[in-house]
């Protein structure tokens, strides 16, 4: 199994993601430079956190037109696994690969802290190592993570189980107080209906070793490993 981590100018979590995959998960991984178009036979593409193209215009707005994204979009549409973390989530919504938009945090401040996430849907390739309702301690670091979408589209996401993670307290209660940015319905991560494209604001790659303060982010990477092991057994 092989991961590809895209590096845009301004990405700053690409090395974290690379290290989590290579040194902690123990899987093959390569960087994919934004000016290239070859995904190097990656099974999973990670669009990492950071400030691609300086967040100019809107977060993720310029990155969607980079050469590598042509290939990533084609890969995603044909069923390839693509996940966007933080700025990567913003790139996915800007590209139209995931619905909605990420707007300025309701309190206008950049938020960098550990939060708790409730796993709402564990029937995905990204969450299968968790049980439904599991609470994960994972950090956020963003100024524009306030998930917005129209009422009808939110209902569709809810009805389809596309809301994968929600902000909650340490006991798993989804409360207003545990919402760090004003996201509708405490949404922290969503997936497309086909289940191959996931976007999330929190950073699992920053919570994979005890020294980092939490290892709960490993669930994310282990789920993918599990999903691909099952795929290869199942043919």
């Amino acid at each position: 199994m092989k991961f590809g981590v895209v590096t845009f100018p301004g990405s700053n979590c690409d090395y974290d993601a690379y290290s989590a995959v290579k040194h902690v998960l123990g899987e093959d991984v390569e960087f994919l430079w934004h000016k290239t178009t070859d995904l190097l036979n990656s099974d999973v593409i990670i669009l990492p956190g950071g400030f691609s193209y300086g967040d100019y215009l809107r977060s993720g707005a310029i990155a969607k037109f980079s050469p590598i994204m042509d290939s990533v979009i084609k890969f995603a549409i044909s069923g390839g696994y693509v996940c966007g973390i933080c700025n990567g989530f913003q790139v996915l919504t800007e590209s139209g690969l995931l619905p909605g938009a990420l707007i300025r945090n309701d309190h206008l401040r950049f938020s960098c802290k550990y939060v708790y996430l409730k796993v709402e849907n564990n029937q995905t390739a990204y969450t299968s190592a968790s049980k439904p309702g599991d609470v994960l301690k994972i950090p956020i670091a963003h100024g524009e993570g306030n998930y917005y979408n129209f009422e009808g589209d939110i209902k569709t996401l809810e009805d389809n189980g596309q809301i994968v993670y929600r902000y909650c307290d340490s006991e798993g209660n989804v409360t207003k107080e545990s919402n760090p940015n004003g996201s509708i319905n405490n949404i922290a991560g969503i997936i497309n209906t086909e289940g191959n494209i996931l976007g999330m604001m929190p950073h699992p790659e920053r919570a994979v070793e005890p020294i980092l303060g939490s290892v709960d982010g490993l669930k994310f990477f282990e789920s993918l490993k599990l999903a691909f092991a099952n795929l290869s057994i199942g043919g």
């Binding site: 215009l57 809107r58 707005a61 919504t93 800007e94 619905p99 909605g100 938009a101 917005y148 979408n149």
Partner: peptide
């Protein structure tokens, strides 16, 4: 395509 995001 670029200057605005039609979602918001």
């Amino acid at each position: 395509k670029l200057l605005s995001n039609p979602v918001i």
